[in-house]
Computed example of a mutant assay.
Amino acid sequence: MHRSRVYALLIDAPEPEVDRAAAFWSAALGVSARPVPAEPHFTDLHEAVPGLVTAVQAVDDAPRFHLDIESDDVAAETARLVALGATEVSRWLECRTLRAPGGHLVCVVPVASPPEVFTAQARTWP
Rank of each mutant, 00 (worst) to 15 (best):
I11F: 09
W92L: 14
H104E: 14
A75G: 11
T97E: 13
E39K: 09
A48P: 00
M1C: 07
V111P: 03
V59Q: 00
P40F: 09
H41C: 14
D73K: 06
E47C: 10
E15Q: 14
V109M: 07
V6M: 11
H66P: 00
F24N: 08
L9R: 00
V106H: 05
R5W: 02
R123P: 02
P37W: 06
P114S: 02
T43F: 06
H66Y: 08
A8V: 04
L105Y: 09
L29T: 00
A122Q: 02
D68G: 07
A28T: 06
C95E: 15
E94N: 10
P40I: 12
V56W: 04
T97V: 14
P63L: 01
R3C: 12
Q121M: 13
A120I: 13
R20S: 14
F24M: 08
V36L: 11
S26L: 08
V108D: 02
V106R: 05
P126Q: 06
V82T: 12
R91V: 13
L84Q: 14
T54L: 07
G30L: 01
R5N: 12
T124D: 10
T124K: 05
A122I: 01
E39C: 06
P16F: 02
V6K: 02
A21S: 15
R5S: 11
T124V: 11
A86H: 01
I11A: 03
G102L: 00
P101V: 06
V53S: 08
H41A: 15
D73P: 02
G51P: 09
D73F: 00
